[in-house]
Design a protein around this nucleic acid. Structure first.
Length: 677
DNA sequence: GTTAGGG
DNA sequence: CCCTAAC
């Protein structure tokens, strides 16, 4: 007989998400659960995000629309290691003499220069690898071939407002609180040594209080070509790829598991919605990191290929995409996207949804203005100054989704721990997304602005919550570099989220929310999309601490089963809900036109006629859309949601709808008369 | 494989 | 958007 336990990780408000997908009814509202079982003494997950960036006087480069002129130095560095005696860790800004503290995790002061810059990595012995603005040079990378090959970093932006480091109450872990531009690096580092897995460390470099000093140091942090490399893995890829401007950051990470395989031990059998999770935190870092990237939502660049951009000549079946095998190049591609996207993390510490540089009219903006909210936002709130419209968020903790674990009663506690760990890793492995909740309700409307959501005012921020959840991007069918752009694009678009309860709830939500994107349906509209809303999200402390859940190194254990709740119930692992893609006005128009001509009973024809190149729109989608359009047309404008559809189109919808309803009987013929519109 | 509808 | 029954 098995023992079923629902484990709730309530640390710091963390919540373990229903992995695969929660029932709709469960998609909303707070997911907090109480800790039922004391067996799990502690669990920690950490998630911290923050991005930052640098972009200094390169305003001239800002004109480059296709490439972000902002170089976000973004990194998530969660380090896991086992540390029985955890001392509260406190991170502070490196300078101000606090540099040593920041390295308390394991770096010795000697590794840090006076200026708070860690010059070297404590390779072998240091459990901690906390690199603050570490510059990883090629030589470094080779050196890192060793155990701790990670690096991290983040760069802080010189201009820094204020920083306050404080240890938060019961959290034994690292508490960090940064205001202003902070580059947070969270790295989960896996080590081949079991013992190393366990505690989480967060490296969150904070900006210096003294802008001047940081400013001065900053350049030094960069390597020759001024690229900051984020070497998440052992072998950073030759950077070819992503470098852009001087301050670009290079993410030399790879997804290839091969690099880690040897360090990975077979894990318990964790029935999760995915590939076998790896034990230990080794993958976590990668995952977490990559997740983040993947989480990077709808990329503008993809949108260019969307819909009928005409880019895609052939109509491919969706299945094609689902089954496509992921390739490394795909990974790189995705990452790259991320990188490109990472421009999201803007220089002023903001965590915006889009790169300023991508904004049509941001090119000429400089300084604060560039960091302002997007044009669209401005449009909605013209009376506001961009700066005034900024919303600063301070995320104290993330809720972690629920996990349900089932183990034999005879299972040892140690095994249980491990099982949990595996489950957690499995989650991390798939990446995490961020869900946004307002007043306990999940916000799935990525297209609304914070203001529209009523969370732009300080008063309302209290009701704003974030939660971790499986990243929807995870299931990305792979992209093939060699594939036609359209294909790749489509593939991405077709992506489904693995076990995400809410389709669009992930980082994308955050990003989207922060950066209202009006429409992602068609190319034409893309350019009008608002781009960078600049909102600062301060991820103060996000971390947990728990040694209990730390994977236990040597332990013969029987296979345990970790079964995500909804997993059994529904969809298989492969079937994830497609990402939501609201129809754009132009799509609606095309649909209406087609229906006017073909009627409402020939969706396949409609698809072929008007959406042949829009692979992500199936005839069922069109049919459904029509259904909703008809409904929308019937309700009052006030009740409508999402991007408003021109009344004119709605009128046509009603007209066509009524027409075809009346002529339903007559449509038997292959040549239905065109309605006289 | 398409449609039509409910969820 | 998903899922299914029905064709």
């Amino acid at each position: 007989m098995g023992l079923k336990k629902r484990l709730d990780f309530g640390f710091n408000g963390f919540q373990v998400p229903n992995i695969p997908r929660a029932p709709r009814s469960a998609r909303r509202g707070p997911h907090r659960k109480s800790v039922e079982d004391g067996q799990i003494s502690a669990f920690e997950l950490l998630a911290s995000l923050a991005g930052k960036l640098l972009q200094e006087s390169e305003s001239s480069a800002s004109s480059n629309a296709s490439e972000g002129n902002l170089q976000p130095a973004f990194g998530i560095d969660v380090k896991q290691e086992r540390q029985d005696e955890h001392k509260p860790l406190k991170e502070e800004c490196l300078d101000q003499g606090s540099s040593e503290e920041s390295v308390s995790l394991g770096l010795t002061s000697q590794n840090i220069n006076r200026k708070g810059i860690i010059k070297e990595f404590p390779h072998a012995d240091s459990d901690t690898v906390l690199e603050r603005t570490s510059v990883i040079t090629s030589s470094d990378s080779s050196a890192k071939a060793g155990r701790h090959a990670k690096s991290v970093i983040c760069s802080s932006r010189p201009t820094f407002q204020k920083y306050s480091g404080k240890v938060e109450g019961d959290s034994p872990g690292i508490v960090e609180s940064c205001y202003g531009n902070v580059a947070t690096g969270i790295e989960v580092q896996g080590d081949s040594k079991p013992l190393e897995t366990g505690s989480l460390k967060i490296a969150n470099p904070c900006s210096s209080k003294d802008p001047t000093e940081l400013h001065a140091n900053y350049p030094a942090m960069l390597n020759g070509d001024s690229n900051v490399k984020l070497s998440l893995f052992r072998d950073p890829i030759p950077n070819a790829s992503f470098s852009r401007h001087k301050n670009d950051i290079e993410l030399g990470s790879r997804d290839d598991d091969e690099n880690f395989s040897r360090c990975i031990k077979p894990s318990n059998r964790v029935k999760v919605f995915r590939p076998p999770p790896r034990v230990g935190g080794q993958k976590i870092r990668k995952l977490l990191t990559s997740k983040y990237w993947k989480a990077t939502p709808k990329l503008r660049e993809f949108e260019h290929y969307r819909y009928d951009g005409g880019v895609k000549p052939i109509y491919h079946k969706r299945k094609t995409f689902y089954n496509r095998e992921r390739s490394q190049r795909d990974t790189l591609y995705k990452r790259r996207k991320l990188v490109d996207r990472s421009s999201v993390v803007t220089s002023d510490g903001g965590f915006s949804g889009e790169s300023v540089s991508n904004s049509p009219d941001n090119g000429d903006k400089t300084g604060p203005a560039a960091n302002g909210i997007s044009a669209a936002v401005i449009g909605h709130q013209a009376s506001f100054r961009s700066e005034e419209s900024h919303v600063k968020l301070r995320i104290k903790s993330f809720r972690v989704p629920e996990l349900v674990i089932e183990v034999p009663e005879t299972e040892t506690v140690g095994s249980l721990k491990r099982t949990v760990m595996d489950a957690v890793n499995a989650i991390l492995r798939d990446g995490l997304g961020v869900g946004v909740l307002v007043q306990g309700k999940k916000i799935t409307d990525d297209y609304r602005t914070l203001m529209q959501m009523g969370i732009s005012s300080k008063d309302s921020l209290d009701s704003l919550d974030f939660m971790l959840e499986p990243s929807p991007m995870q299931a990305l069918p792979s992209l093939c570099f060699g594939d036609p752009p359209s294909l790749s694009c489509e593939t991405v678009l077709v992506t489904r989220s693995p076990g995400t309860p809410v389709l669009d709830s992930t980082m994308s939500d955050v990003l989207s929310v922060l950066s209202p994107i009006t429409n992602s349906g068609c190319v034409a509209e893309t350019k009008h999309e608002p781009v960078s809303s600049h909102i600062d999200i301060l991820t103060d402390k996000t971390m947990l601490e728990s040694q209990a859940l730390v994977a236990i190194p040597e332990m013969s254990m029987e296979p345990l089963a970790v079964v995500p709740v909804s997993q059994k119930t529904k969809r298989s692992e492969l079937a994830q809900r497609r990402t939501r893609r609201p129809f754009s006005v132009s799509e609606v128009e095309a649909l209406v036109t087609a229906v006017e001509e073909l009627g409402t009973g020939r969706w396949r024809d409609v698809k072929l006629r008007a959406f042949e190149n829009a692979d992500h729109r199936t005839y069922v989608d069109l049919k459904d859309k029509w259904k909703t359009l008809v409904h929308t047309a019937k309700i009052s404008p006030q009740q409508r949601r999402g991007e408003p559809v021109p009344q004119e189109l709605l009128d046509r919808v009603l007209a066509a709808h009524s027409y075809w309803c009346q002529h339903q009987a007559k449509q038997h013929g292959k040549h239905p008369a065109l309605p006289a519109f």
